[in-house]
Design a protein around this nucleic acid. Sequence first.
DNA 1: CAGCGAGCGAGAGCACTGCTCTCGCCATCG
DNA 2: CGATGGCGAGAGCAGTGCTCTCGCTCGCTG
Lengths: 218, 218
Amino acid sequence: MPAMPSGTRARARAETSRAILDEAHRQLAEQGAAALSLRSVAREVGMVSSAVYRYVASRDELLTLLIVEAYDAVGERAEAARDTDAPPRDQWRAVWRAVRTWAREHPAEYALIYGSPVPGYAAPAETIPAAGRVGLVLAAIVAEHGDPGAGAGWPEVLRADVLPGLSPALAVPAVVAWTQLYGTVGFELFGQYENVVVDRDAYFDAVADAAATAVGLP
Amino acid sequence: MPAMPSGTRARARAETSRAILDEAHRQLAEQGAAALSLRSVAREVGMVSSAVYRYVASRDELLTLLIVEAYDAVGERAEAARDTDAPPRDQWRAVWRAVRTWAREHPAEYALIYGSPVPGYAAPAETIPAAGRVGLVLAAIVAEHGDPGAGAGWPEVLRADVLPGLSPALAVPAVVAWTQLYGTVGFELFGQYENVVVDRDAYFDAVADAAATAVGLP
DNA sequence: CAGCGAGCGAGAGCACTGCTCTCGCCATCG
DNA sequence: CGATGGCGAGAGCAGTGCTCTCGCTCGCTG
């Protein structure tokens, strides 16, 4: 094989890491977080279980990595869905729909990040930035096009610096809308709307629209 | 011991069942659903693990029993919190607060019923009636005091017979409010509001109030 | 260029899990 | 009174997370 001054080792390591993550991803998608087993990941990747521990400190750390990837995936989708040239309400609806679509495509990942904390909970610090991406997209739309008058009547209960560029009046309804997005998607995904909501698409769009009104989108 | 024509056996069985359920409850509350182990329940109750299977078919069935109990517990709280003589908005707020309070007191139970489905999901049929109780309390308040005019603008996307006595126009915003209640409680409980919402009490009350307005409560 | 250390994979092992099956005891019903 | 069926105990299987030790070998350093 051609000379490889250094890097050989590092590259092999990166490849193995990737293979482990990919296989973990596959198992998560297929059987859910509870069924994800480090041993079976190892088996599938073609090594013995103890070797995996060279790459991942514990099963929990593996889950943390998957959580970050999931947050990034849905955040990326949300960012991509926003067409800044479109009318504000269309932007808003597109982002909402993107999150819902992603969630329906990746129910296990969605459950992992927005369902109950898996083992003993306590989301590690490294997940925080990734977790905020969708919220920031929504906040940006509100900041640019929201009518601050719509924020009247809400108390000021937020940390001042969370949503930069957003008028304090609109920050609270924005957080409410953000909550509503995930609450609605979660209820649909986890079966709470079974035998209740028939036309889920129309229902979802209606909720999105009401939220848009609440944050003062024209 | 005094004669016990029959019943002895049945009573012993009921007591053992109760002991198992109580211990399972305890473990759920202390360490969460993931850490609940049939073997350790057995150990604590003072029998061998295989004997527990005389009472409970599987770990999943145990979890199902706990789910039903949790639904009933929160439903009961919600029902008790409603004072039908109070002004509608006070009734509404009291029910919302009752759910939130229960959730904060029993985070593991809340996660069990409203978080991601634990193993391979699929909530068993026997949980359905218990699951509806809180929703029915909210629906009753809306049915009695909601202004149907507030329901204008929502599409009709629900099953017709889900919320008996509720005008179709108000049914959709009622479902939205129900979703919002659990979304808000869940976000608070699972740490999504960390570093975002400072005054959680005021925030929650404000959301409840906005929801009351949305369903046309005076 | 030779050699040493660090990274790595394999294997064995511990403590634990869910679940099954078999065995004996004993209360209950006929 | 005697048969039956419910029940608890024990052993056992397959699987899990995680640890520790052992050699190999790659690749940096003297």
